Simulated scan of single mutants.
Amino acid sequence: MDSLGPLNAFVQAAQTRSFTVAGRQLGVSSSAIGKAVARLEERLGVRLFHRSTRTITLTPEGALFLERCRRIFAEIEAAELELSQTQGAPRGKLRVSMPLAGMLMMPALSAFMRAYPEIELDLDFSDRLVDVIEEGFDAVVRAGEIRDSRLMARALGTFRLKLVGAPDYLARRGIPRRPEDLRSHACLHHRYATSGKLEPWPLRRGRKQLEIDLPTTAVVNTIEPLIHMAEQGLGIACLPDFAVRRQLDDGALVTVLDGHTHHAGLFRLLWPSSRYVSPKLRAFADFMAQNLFPA
């Protein structure tokens, strides 16, 4: 058991690629992490890290040792969680990073809070690329591809981008029949918060993707203002279907060019692969997968 401390220091340093970050997560100094790793290397008789003035990287022996250590800690955590599950409902703080569009997921999040009152949600709404492990999140909800091999994933639901406008706007300006007709319309755009680029509209003719120079009547970096502008009859916006489901149902907005828009997106829940899925995280994943995008 006396070896678990140095092993934990090694695992944290290996996962974060930093003695400083590992020390911050464990509540000790970076030098303490370095000394613990050095003692471990001396005891094992192998070098676990290549060190430079700025970074540390695993040696081949270190990479093999990391996988075995992860399994050891996963078994310990599994044993602890197996016992904790006998103590009642999932509980404790759950820190989750949500996209800015997550504000539109509040009905599902509110329902989760009512269903699991002993779980304390700590939500961070941002479209920036967060480091789940380094920043101490239990999980993140994001759309797009997974590029971090350290993370596990679960699909929460699919969505589609739709072109929408208010009936009174379309009565005034006419309904676009071809993608090219959008050049004479007021177009309301979303700008990615991370890159600053405009989100492209998924316009197609058959299997051919179209690149049309659209007017930029307004550009916004969050979705809610675009919904409001579209409802007010200020133009046509390209929005995810889950964000405007109510407006489409009550007729405040209608879709246009459905035959020329082809898009499918996927929201996923991501969490560190080395971490056993706790009851609170499992409850969150199961609930959101069932309730985020109800049929």
Rank of each mutant, 00 (worst) to 15 (best):
4 L>K: 11
251 G>A: 07
164 V>D: 10
205 R>A: 09
17 R>S: 14
279 P>C: 03
144 G>K: 01
40 L>Q: 06
137 F>L: 14
199 E>Y: 07
249 D>P: 00
115 A>C: 01
94 L>I: 05
50 H>F: 12
257 L>S: 00
291 N>M: 05
105 M>K: 01
279 P>L: 09
258 D>S: 11
278 S>Y: 03
188 L>R: 08
191 R>C: 06
94 L>D: 08
274 S>Y: 15
22 A>Y: 04
183 R>L: 10
105 M>V: 03
69 C>V: 04
39 R>D: 11
58 L>P: 14
42 E>P: 02
76 I>Q: 14
3 S>L: 15
20 T>W: 01
212 I>N: 04
247 Q>F: 07
210 L>A: 11
267 F>N: 09
262 H>L: 10
276 Y>R: 13
93 K>Q: 15
71 R>E: 15
59 T>D: 12
80 E>S: 06
46 V>Y: 06
16 T>W: 11
1 M>S: 14
227 I>Y: 11
128 R>A: 12
199 E>D: 04
59 T>M: 08
10 F>H: 05
241 D>Y: 11
43 R>I: 03
41 E>I: 05
2 D>T: 12
130 V>C: 08
64 L>S: 15
129 L>P: 00
78 A>R: 15
132 V>H: 03
266 L>M: 13
282 R>D: 14
144 G>N: 07
45 G>E: 03
259 G>F: 01
21 V>E: 15
11 V>C: 12
174 G>H: 10
261 T>V: 15
266 L>Y: 01
46 V>G: 00
214 L>Q: 02
59 T>P: 10
284 F>Y: 07
135 E>Q: 15
20 T>C: 01
134 E>F: 00
224 E>K: 13
188 L>G: 08
222 T>P: 02
198 L>M: 10
50 H>E: 13
236 I>L: 11
154 R>Y: 13
270 L>H: 05
139 A>K: 07
